[in-house]
């Protein structure tokens, strides 16, 4: 995929919050980057808004990034450990 561009992805997970950097995707253009980012980084919640920026367009200092986490939603419950009922005797898994 040498010709697909690397895009950095920023997601606003809830109204009122800032967009946060979550990672990157490869895509042929920015529209595809938005779709790929949506499919990859919002599998467990509906991100309210997505930004994509070609990685090459970012100028950075050497400062640290903050951790980016997603809060799971209740939409696809089988993705969450609590969905699987195990007997008490199994203990923590």
């Amino acid at each position: 995929m040498a010709d697909w561009t690397l895009f950095e992805v920023f997601i606003r997970s809830k109204h009122g919050l800032n967009h946060k950097h979550v990672g990157s995707v490869h895509a042929a253009d920015s529209e595809m980057a938005i779709e790929n980012a949506r499919d990859l980084y919002t599998r467990r919640n509906e991100g309210v808004s997505i930004w994509v920026v070609p990685s090459a367009a970012i100028t950075a200092t050497a400062t640290d990034e903050k951790e980016a986490l997603f809060d799971p939603s209740d939409d696809k419950i089988y993705r969450h450990a609590g969905f699987y009922k195990l007997p008490d005797e199994v203990g923590h898994m």
């Binding site: 995929m1 697909w4 995707v25 490869h26 895509a27 790929n36 499919d39 990859l40 599998r43």
Partner: peptide, 14 residues
């Protein structure tokens, strides 16, 4: 044809 597409196709399937 691309790794990103694996995720996308499975989203539609789900």
């Amino acid at each position: 044809p691309a790794l990103e597409e694996e995720v996308a196709l499975m989203n539609v399937g789900l």
